Computed example of a mutant assay.
Amino acid sequence: MNKWIALVGVVIVIALVWFLNLSDPIQVSTAKVEQGTVAETVANTRSGSVKACRRSNLSLPLGGQISQINVTEGDRVTTGQLLLQLSNDDIKASIEQANALITAAKLEQQRYCVIADSDKHEYERVRKLVAQKLSTEEQIDLAEAKYRASAASCAASQAQVEQSLANLKMQEATLAKSTLYAPFDGIVAEVNGEVGEFATPSPPGIATLPLIDLINADCFYISAPMDEVDAGRLQVGQTVKVTIDAYRDQDFPGTVRRIAPYVYALEKQARTVEVEANITNSEAFPLLVGYSADMEVIISQQENTLRVPTEAVFDENKVYVVNNGTLQLKTIEAGLSNWRYTEVKSGLKQGDQVVTSTTQSGLVDGIKVVIQ
């Protein structure tokens, strides 16, 4: 029974091929089997971004009225340059007051210590008199007590000086909080505020706009999300091919520099791992922070191997080869594969014409075709 079923199947296939060959040949798109590089890669699931190696959202820990803004968006600044300042006349007045208190405390210390020195001499004199039986024990006790009291006052006045100096440092620290300096060389990306407006520090748990957004434009990297299923195949140092929408015909080489140690889980979105890659040899192509970018991390790679376009392969290991105007179904041993190329370990030879339009209808083994 099975033999009859098989025989009927063969007859149907032969009849179908005969019928189709009566019609005009089907036009197909093809590509040649060639030698080249095939890499197994992992690509980001959503678009990534160009980021700066150093970027700071600068704000002040002190609230107050803005009195100076010395930069505008797009300005280049150097380390230590004054960017913004709050009104601080009251703090400067407090510093003057602190200096005056230091002067007074030092003079008070000088007075107490002079008295203590005098009382010490008196105590030494009375002690000598007692030794010569020219004074009483009561007098030396009184002299010693007076000397100890004045010595304590001298020491207390020294502590008062130190307290005044600490108060000056505190006022100077408050003054420093009213000025904003550039922590590194960079470009001012954004200024939020105007002279006369009030700037307030962010309350805990509430994000506010930074007064100044500063970007260092000397170093860039790419950050993009990768599917969690590929996270175990990624390693720091792997080669990366970066593409940037602003330079569509240019690939940028790079290396993986960081893999996030956790999975980012957001409701109704795929779970991803954030991956960062350094960019090399990008000096000739000006980059801007925020450019959309994609990356392909190369897991493994074969050089000078036979390859076919990946769209030519169907059912994992089948291809159609055009031979003298006729389709031949062939089974191949596939190796590495990516969205563009698939490695052919056996089953094809260099120069073979494989059909790339495998999704069109009417393609069967033995049919007549015409290459477009």
Rank of each mutant, 00 (worst) to 15 (best):
C113T: 11
K146N: 06
Q132M: 12
E108I: 04
E96T: 05
D117W: 08
V126Y: 03
D90Q: 09
D119A: 07
E137F: 02
K146D: 13
Y147T: 04
V130K: 01
Q110A: 14
V130W: 00
K92A: 13
A116Y: 10
A116T: 08
D90P: 00
E124K: 08
N99E: 14
A131R: 11
Y147S: 08
I95F: 12
R127F: 02
Y147E: 01
A93T: 15
L129V: 07
S94Y: 04
E124I: 13
R111V: 15
E122L: 14
V114Q: 13
V114L: 09
S135Q: 05
C113K: 06
H121M: 10
L129C: 03
E96N: 15
Q97A: 10
D89Q: 07
E108Q: 11
Q132D: 14
A145F: 05
Q110D: 14
K133M: 04
A100S: 13
Y112R: 15
Q132I: 04
N99M: 10
T103R: 06
T103F: 12
K120T: 11
K106T: 14
A131Q: 12
K133R: 12
N99T: 11
E138V: 04
T136I: 05
R125I: 01
Q109M: 15
K146T: 06
S94C: 01
A131H: 09
L129S: 05
V114G: 05
E124P: 01
L134M: 11
S135R: 09
A143G: 02
T136N: 01
D90M: 05
I102S: 10
D89A: 13
A98D: 06
E144H: 07
T136F: 00
N88L: 04
N88A: 14
H121F: 05
V130F: 01
Q110H: 13
A104I: 10
V126T: 08
L134P: 02
Y123I: 00
E96C: 03
R111W: 07
R127V: 04
I102H: 01
E108D: 12
L134S: 11
V130N: 09
D117R: 10
T136Q: 00
D90S: 15
Q132V: 03
A98I: 09
I140N: 01
Y112G: 06
E122K: 01
H121V: 06
Q132L: 13
S87C: 02
E144L: 03
E138G: 05
A100D: 10
A105S: 14
E138R: 09
I102R: 14
A98G: 06
S87T: 13
L101G: 10
D119R: 13
S135W: 02
C113D: 12
Q139R: 12
E122M: 11
R111N: 07
V126A: 07
V126C: 00
L101Y: 07
N88D: 13
